[in-house]
Amino acid sequence: MQNLIELKDLKREFVITKGWIKRKKEIVKAVDGISFEVKKGEIFGLLGQNGAGKTTIIKMLITLLAPSSGTCKVLGYNTYGEEKEFRDKINFIFGGEMGVYKRLSARDNLKYFANLYYMDEAKANKQIDKLLELVDLKNKADVLVETFSKGMVQRLQIARGLINDPEIIFMDEPTIGLDPLGAKILRNIIRKLKTDGKTIMLTTHYLYEADELCDRIAIINNGHLVALGTPQELRNIISGMNTIEIVLEKVTNETIDVIEKLESVRSVEKADTDKGIKLIIKYLEDADISGNILNSLSGLKILSFNQKELTLEDVYIKLVEASR
């Protein structure tokens, strides 16, 4: 499949000046040698902590920022120097309330942004109606944005980001500030865009969202690429361990020893909680040990039993901590 986005040893440094009279310059490496490609039609997730370099990468891709070095290409063109060649084919959706004209109505906002793409008036009006319906703002189309709730502004941002029917959409924490319904609308929009053949790059702190939507995910930390793969491939990286959490009224050390000696069990941790004594049992992913564990707990009062599969969040935390 064709690569629409190509990053090769991409670096971006920021020079920060400190002091008023005696000035000191400090160089911050926000992105430090990142390489990956995004294929046509893919939803590509970019995960990382605050300050990891996600937004800087997106800003370089949408032509807001020049790379310090390395290759940063969109649709085969350099994002700095050749941006004219592809500007009409990309757009972005950033989280937060900034970026729209609050003294204009939703419709006028979209008219203004459509004009930035030299859109034909009839085509623009059709697209505006379609988008207002998509983001559920049709009945508020002619109301001033300053009266909108945070979620409504964010939905307008989504419509703005789709105004030119872009081939590639960059989304930086698009669900931030959205209520559950708004977030669901956006996730459905993302799925629809994918079926329409659009390519999406998404950053988010909600890992379940990335797990649910993304075809491939890159985890970055301190400007470096930590891992790259499908959500399942990332799970496989950390050795395929599952967890069972059991809360008991009381438990003896002998019982814990018995569980520890069970085949496939790799560790048992004991913790006192308000509800009782919690055992956290880690075991190999493919093993079925719940029956054996319950047998070894016979006669004890079980308050709760929770079998947890490895989540993307577990993977993310492990990988980010390991990269520090």
Binding site: R87, N91, G99, F113, L116
Partner: peptide, 13 residues
């Protein structure tokens, strides 16, 4: 100051 410069800069206008 209002964060709208992004939309202007990335557009072909």
């Amino acid at each position: 100051y209002t964060g709208r410069i992004r939309s202007i800069i990335i557009s072909p206008v």
